[in-house]
Write a protein that binds this DNA or RNA. Structure first.
Lengths: 210, 210
DNA sequence: TAGATTGTTAATCGATTAACAATC
DNA sequence: TAGATTGTTAATCGATTAACAATC
């Protein structure tokens, strides 16, 4: 069913929006949806919705629109949401603990399996039942549990060294809350960046120009 | 100097990258930079850099490139970074406290002036010297201090009601960490969204397709 | 069948890249 | 002056929108 090959960045960036829209529709008990309804939910055009979905397959039915459950499960498959992804969280500060909770929350099948910090002050604490470990326990832990993802919740200046360690330990996927450009330093990795500083700067621009 | 009128989304999204690149160059003690150097720092082309910067003015010098201090200060002006922007943080959980620290950190001139939570359990605590207040103190506080920004660090299901309150209290600018689409509900507001769930879903896609 | 809505091709729009004269 | 690099226009590329035949 998947003809996915050269999916454009633009399409990929909309997949989460489709998925969340379909979740809302499903919760509301609806069973079918048209491209124009979906479009108005995410602020695009019906044409765009149909083009986007047809990158992956013909999920609709002429005259009828799309079956919500079917489409939702196709998109879950496209996004890899059904597969369990284990994560270590690097940094046990406020942000690390917030993200640990975020990870456990949803039905996206991300599972935090370890939280690490360089500061021993955290080492008697736990988050969501997970003990906080010391950074020097990382090698043994990664060797043993082979986590799929590392989440970087550490200060920018510690990012290069810790990333290098993690790459050496076999980690290839990052959810990155630092300003460090992981993909540039290690092009063979996957990195999804949450550049909070850039977001804040953009907000400043929006305020100035409104 | 500013011919800014119809600056495209694409250009705006790169302004923070230029700013951060210039900060790094300035810290390294460099005084001039060419469009091609800048391009390689942010992964674009020299042509794109020159086009982008010329949306706002001719800041370069033929044969010499750009003066780093000059360009940095021009971009600070374009982005509104020199103006002080006061912020209230809504939600004093891990995320709210992490963001309160983030806001205080940089030279972006955002200043947290209040932290609010519905849960009285926080009301004896403080973050960075700021007392955590109860949600019912918000109206009097906003009336008195007229904060420029509200930062939403609350669960998704509380976002619609709280946003409505905040809009009624005169808040027009949001840094939004919930899944709620503020701009759609209140088109006259500015909202910079950090959609963590979408980011996580994108990471799942990257892992599946690598 | 008639109405609705898809899948898909063609047309438009916008953003990126290339090219080069201007000029430091 | 000669070399370098900008500012800017033109060409290319990609993404969005429009149109419509296919079909449920």
């Amino acid at each position: 069913m998947t003809r996915e090959n050269n999916i454009s960045k633009a399409v990929i960036s909309r997949l989460p929006l489709y998925y969340r829209a379909l979740c809302r529709l499903a919760v509301d008990g609806k069973t079918r949806v048209s491209s124009s309804e979906l479009a108005s939910m995410l602020g695009g055009t019906a044409s765009q919705v149909r083009q986007d979905l047809n990158c992956f397959g013909g999920f609709g039915q002429q005259g009828m629109g799309y079956d919500i459950d079917r489409l939702k499960s196709e998109i879950r498959d496209i996004l890899g949401l059904d597969k369990i992804k284990t994560a270590v969280i690097i940094g046990a500060g406020n942000l690390g603990r917030a993200i640990a909770n975020k990870l456990t929350n949803d039905e996206l099948n991300f599972i935090p399996i370890g939280i690490f910090d360089s500061d021993p002050v955290f080492s008697s604490l736990s988050v969501k039942g997970l003990p906080i470990m010391q950074d020097d326990e990382l090698p043994a832990f990664c060797e043993k549990f082979k986590p799929d993802i590392a989440v970087l919740c550490i200060p920018d200046d510690k990012a290069p060294e810790l990333t290098d360690n993690l790459v050496m330990l076999g980690i290839r996927n990052f959810w990155n809350f630092t300003g460090f450009d992981i993909k540039k330093a290690y092009p063979f990795t996957n990195s999804e960046n949450v550049y909070l500083t850039d977001s804040l700067i953009t907000l400043s621009y929006l305020i100035k120009n409104s």
